[in-house]
Write a protein that binds this DNA or RNA. Sequence first.
DNA 1: ACCTGAACACCGTTCAAGT
DNA 2: ACCTGAACACCGTTCAAGT
Lengths: 244, 244
Amino acid sequence: MAQRAGAGRRAPLNRDRVLRAAVARADETGIESLSMRKLAKELGVVPMALYKHVASKEELLDGMVDAVIGEIDPPVPGAGWRTAVRQRVLSARQVLLRHPWASRVIETRTNRTSVVLGYMDSMTGTFLAGGFSADLTHHVMHALGNRMWGFTRELFDDGQGGGPDPPPAAFDEMAKRYPHIVEIAMAATRGDLSAVGPGCDEQFEFEFALDLLLDGFERLRDRGWTSRRDHDHAAAVPAPEQGA
Amino acid sequence: MAQRAGAGRRAPLNRDRVLRAAVARADETGIESLSMRKLAKELGVVPMALYKHVASKEELLDGMVDAVIGEIDPPVPGAGWRTAVRQRVLSARQVLLRHPWASRVIETRTNRTSVVLGYMDSMTGTFLAGGFSADLTHHVMHALGNRMWGFTRELFDDGQGGGPDPPPAAFDEMAKRYPHIVEIAMAATRGDLSAVGPGCDEQFEFEFALDLLLDGFERLRDRGWTSRRDHDHAAAVPAPEQGA
DNA sequence: ACCTGAACACCGTTCAAGT
DNA sequence: ACCTGAACACCGTTCAAGT
């Protein structure tokens, strides 16, 4: 009792508690509204107390990303490389969907923490174990890019929620100015343009692009592709197009 | 003379001059240091004067992105779809290299301006004209994603400049903790680990991934791919892997 | 009607003064 | 030696007071 009285009215702060509180706050109110001062207030401490556990806001963000990456499932043990990569990336995607702020923050990280490097090393190892050369694995990791974290910045999405339907009067204007976009939107929604906002199945789009890449990776591996061959003018497959 | 005296010591401000100054400042000193107040000072006006021409800082950023997109070459007229897409995306990449802040800003844009929509519409039209179905074009645009602006957030790069070499003492530690990363880094630099910082040929990596995607797009088009076939469980090509 | 200085409600972080 | 209140040097934007 006397022991606890001296420690104040809360459990003593540590780095983990700071990071967990930061993640929870970002999940609830968004990353834009997360400030050191507000986080300190929520934890019942003075702002400067946080700087005992994180050197700066940048390091706080690094730590938050680490916490999120820690939620990604480990690679499934018995599976082949393709299943292992696919499952892990889709697991990462589920994690990122729980923390909508995280993709934006990951994109701004400039320091790779050991957690980030560990994840990338594990992913790299999966390709190498799957019979990919070190050369090809290198390029394949680049091509996978941020998709390895389970996201791609989407060009069409309005953040979340879809928002209100566009006024039907604007349709003619849209169709005139952006005929091709309207054409593919019509195809995607089977003509139901009120669904054009939330119309895209993001999960499908993600898997479509992922599988396209995995197919390409597999094909290059089976072909014994190497970057030495045509490093100068073309990359994967020159494949001259017909017509003009 | 009397006419000019009333207008003050500078040409009258307009939206275009504001945007050009903002782009120039971001090019020189980085996007982080671009504030409404500093921009106003540089233009010799009071901060609030900017709000006559842009409604908010967000709209300023939208306008800056528009200005950058305006620098991208128009599609080459006579070429086939693949050349047209490839050239345009590589042109976008050159533009983005001139404005290193732009990729980061594009990623945070939530409103699509008419300039952004116009570019996407033009790109969409290139696929449609190339014999892609509206259905396939839709998914292909998603798969292309941010690469259509000529960038991918890179996982390995330290911002720009490479930085100082890591101390050689850290190598053993690296090799122990991240053996796979070190393996592909060795392959990429042919064993010259001092080149590991600036070692990646970003242009090659970009074209590698782009061509991988274009190959995949072409293959699906030639096959008459449609999303109706197997929308439920798999995307592009299920292709069961051998072994386990 | 137009323009703008001052003010508001914030930031991340430094630092000197307290215990 | 440890902790922290006040201060510093900023933000984007509102708004009332000036012309």
